[in-house]
Every structure is written in structure tokens, then in C-alpha cells.
Amino acid sequence: MGLTRARIAVDAMGGDHAPSEIVAGAVRAQAELDADVLLVGDPQQINESLKRHSSAANIQVISADGVIEMHEEPLSGIRRKPRASINVAMDLVKQGQADAVVSAGHSGAAMAAALLRLGRLRGIDRPAIGAVLPTMMAKPVLVLDVGANVDCRPKFLEQFALMGKVYSEYVLGTPNPKVGLLNIGEEPTKGNDLAVRAHQMLEDNPQIPFVGNAEGRDVLSGNFDVVVCDGFVGNVLLKFAEAIGEVMLQTMREELPQGLNGKLGVALLKPNLRRIKQRIDHAEHGGGLLLGVAGVCIISHGSSQAPSIFNAIRMAKEAVDHRVLQRIQSQFEPTKAVASEGQASLSRSTEQSEGNE
């Protein structure tokens, strides 16, 4: 399964709390995960942050100049700053010096850099960002796309479903994952033109374990393992789900009893509260995997702190170890082979018809 020790390039300058929180998460990952972390960015700032950690001796620092700011237009930013931290991190993967990239910086810049420097996997028209959300059945659901593509064609959703199936099965450990299409009703004829046409394509593809439409209330039910949608709807859904998690955590803090009895009660409930936080706090999942590019790329929240960065690096390592890229690519090879075989058969039939005339 993958490399014995994955090498993860981390954009140390990206995010609201860079580089201190990024470095802290990376140091923990280096210590606890079977992975090597490469911190990419301003060496002076990174080394200042590393001095605060006693276990940071083995972390490699890769020099980069500048960062793509949040107000910058992604494409022009990465072109004007070829040595920006996200560009250098992507180049490390392209050159085989790293196996994956983690960034909490400008998500548009991260996606643009991945596309320009790594390219798409064969057969993929558009990459998608997949987000892992908790469900009522104590198992996760993968939602994609959650922001890479505001406008989609039906075939994009079909490709998202294939990529999501692979990730759910091999990384999230879901046997025979059930795929759903986010829609406003269960019936195949419900929804806009995109939903109706995508439903038919998903239903007709034997590679996709499609079980039908998923309404908004179904996403977190646990009845689906993968839910596909366009990036506009997916991003709204993701941010709403994150807000719900934050509201629940805040409500629990406010409603826990006060005083000595309250403290004793909290002490008894601590293991349960920790498990609840792990299930509903988006920081526990690290970020979203950019599926469809020719390299493992995790896009974390801009507000990510050390725990989220640690989990993003863990997510990247799992994707590398489970050979997600190779498995996704294999899903599109049979389609090409069948198409080629069909074309060859058609040519033979045409030749025979012409010979009989």
C-alpha cells in the first residue's frame, strides 16, 4: 500500500494563522504519523515558529518567496508569483520530491496551481473538492463538489461519483459505498435540467453504485456514503453544515451545569464530549481532497489551526498510502477500453458491409 513513508509538502504560509499554527500541526504530524513533512515558505518565519517545538528537528524547510493573498485573483496570482509557497509545494510533487500537498491558503490559488502544475488525471474533465461530513449513523458521508466548479455538466457529476466511490471505499473504509445525487425530491424527474440528466447518466453507469436522489435532509442521515452536486450548491451545504456543528458545540458548552457539581459532571462526561467533538467539528476532518488532479492535494480551511492541519496531513498520507490516484485512474481506463473496442467493432462492421455491397 503506497510508500512506506509518505512525504507531505505543507504550504506553511497559507491561512489565517500561518505560519505558527501550520508549523505546530506539521510538527505533531511528523511526530505521530509515519510521514515526512516538508514546510514550504519563508525560512526565517518558519524557523522562528519551529523554535517553539522541541520535537521539530527532523522537519525539512523548503524556501519559497511570497504567498498568494486572499484578495488576489488566483490565476494571475500564481503566474505573477512563480516562487510563491503554493507553487513551490506543487512543484515538489511534480518533481517527485513530495507525494502530496496540504494548504490552508487561497483555495482558488491552490486549485489553479494544481491544475497548471500537476494537470488532470486522464478522463477527468473537472476536478472536484470532496468534503467529509458526519452522519447520524456514526459513519462519514463524502460530498463533492463543494466549491471547485460553480457550474457543472451532467458528465462532471458522473465523474465526481466515480472518484467519490473510490475515495469512500479505500480511504474512508466503506464497503460498497452508496452514491446519491443531491436534489429537491426523490423522483428521477425532479430538479433542474442538470439534475434530471445527471440522474439518468448515474443510473446507466454500471461502475457507479447509484441508489437515487438525496434530498437535503438525507445528506447527514447515513443512508448515502457519497453525495454528488455542483460546487455552488455543495459549498453552501458545506458551510451550513459547519455552522450547525459550531452551534451544537457552543450550545453544549453553554448548557453544561455550572459550579462544583457541573465540573464533576463534565469530568464524567469528558470521554463522551470528546467523541462528540470528533464527530461534528470540521477541524477534525482537516479539509477537502481535490480529486481529479494528478497529485494528492488537500485544501484546508483558511481558519485552520494546528489540529486541523494535523488531520489534513493525516488525510493526505491516507490518500497516498491507499493509492487513491491510481485507483481513480483505473475507473476511467475500462471506459476508454470499451469505447475503443466499440469503435473497432463499428469499423469492422462498416468494412464488412462495404465488402458485401
Rank of each mutant, 00 (worst) to 15 (best):
251 T>F: 10
252 M>C: 07
252 M>P: 02
252 M>D: 03
253 R>W: 00
254 E>H: 12
254 E>Q: 14
257 P>M: 07
257 P>G: 11
259 G>A: 12
261 N>V: 10
261 N>E: 12
261 N>Y: 10
262 G>D: 08
262 G>H: 11
263 K>M: 14
263 K>E: 12
263 K>A: 13
263 K>Q: 12
267 A>D: 07
267 A>G: 09
268 L>W: 11
268 L>S: 08
269 L>W: 05
269 L>C: 08
270 K>F: 06
271 P>Q: 11
272 N>P: 06
272 N>I: 12
272 N>V: 13
272 N>K: 14
272 N>L: 14
274 R>Y: 09
275 R>C: 06
276 I>D: 01
276 I>M: 15
277 K>T: 09
277 K>A: 04
277 K>Q: 09
278 Q>I: 01
278 Q>H: 08
279 R>I: 09
279 R>M: 14
281 D>Y: 04
283 A>C: 10
283 A>K: 14
284 E>N: 04
284 E>F: 01
284 E>L: 00
284 E>P: 01
286 G>C: 07
287 G>L: 03
287 G>P: 01
288 G>K: 04
288 G>A: 15
288 G>T: 05
288 G>L: 05
289 L>A: 15
289 L>C: 10
290 L>Q: 00
290 L>G: 03
291 L>K: 00
291 L>Q: 02
293 V>L: 05
294 A>W: 01
295 G>F: 05
295 G>Y: 07
296 V>P: 02
296 V>I: 14
298 I>K: 05
299 I>W: 01
300 S>A: 15
300 S>N: 06
300 S>G: 13
302 G>H: 10
302 G>C: 13
302 G>V: 10
303 S>W: 10
304 S>R: 04
305 Q>M: 11
306 A>C: 05
306 A>M: 03
306 A>Y: 00
307 P>C: 07
307 P>S: 04
308 S>F: 01
308 S>Y: 00
308 S>E: 05
309 I>A: 02
309 I>C: 03
311 N>I: 04
312 A>N: 04
312 A>G: 07
313 I>M: 05
314 R>T: 08
314 R>Q: 15
315 M>L: 15
315 M>A: 15
316 A>I: 04
317 K>T: 13
317 K>A: 15
318 E>G: 04
318 E>S: 13
318 E>L: 15
319 A>R: 05
320 V>G: 06
321 D>L: 12
321 D>W: 08
322 H>W: 11
323 R>S: 13
323 R>E: 15
323 R>V: 10
323 R>K: 14
325 L>M: 09
326 Q>F: 07
326 Q>M: 11
326 Q>R: 12
